[in-house]
């Protein structure tokens, strides 16, 4: 019991000693980098619809996202995306490019452990939870809609 109190006291003390960083610069950077990534997406989408006027909007969006995923994967391979990430934080994590980066980076990192046990197994160490949670949530939503439709 006494130990616990000492620990709590120490942790409170540490919390107070942690250097405070200014939040505004990083918020601003995440804002404009995130905005620019979305702008690039909109630009690609509009360009696709301009070049192929007959393309369905759904297909155009799919191509847009694939293009963004490719760009992010490529920048990760070049070793540039982590520098953008360090600068922009949430600005480069939240867009779909961050998802792509979180799949590409472990794939490249763990290639030395072999294609199967390195690249393929470790590919989802960061992005796995995203797919798992997203898919489970979508199944739940589907089930709810199915049950609601029965009533």
């Amino acid at each position: 019991m006494k130990n616990q109190q000492i620990n709590q006291k120490y942790n409170r003390y540490v919390e107070a000693r942690i250097p405070k960083t200014k939040a505004w610069p990083s918020l601003f950077n995440s804002f404009w980098v995130g905005g620019v990534i979305c702008l690039i997406g909109q630009g690609i989408n509009d360009a696709l619809l301009y070049i192929f006027p007959s393309m369905a909007e759904q297909t155009a969006w799919a191509w847009t996202l694939i293009a963004l995923i490719f760009i992010a994967s490529f920048l990760t391979a070049l070793g540039v995306y982590d520098k953008i990430g360090k600068f922009a934080g949430g600005g480069s994590i939240v867009p779909i490019t961050g998802f792509s980066n979180s799949i590409s980076s472990p794939a490249i990192e763990f290639k030395h452990e072999g294609i199967i046990y390195g690249t393929c197994v470790k590919m989802f160490t960061v992005a796995g939870p995203v797919i798992v949670c997203g898919v489970v949530a979508s199944v739940v939503v589907g089930l709810i809609y199915y049950i609601a439709g029965l009533i």
Partner: peptide, 10 residues
């Protein structure tokens, strides 16, 4: 992984 774009905490 080295190439993951995240920030370091202070």
């Amino acid at each position: 992984p080295l190439e993951l774009g995240n920030q370091r905490v202070p």
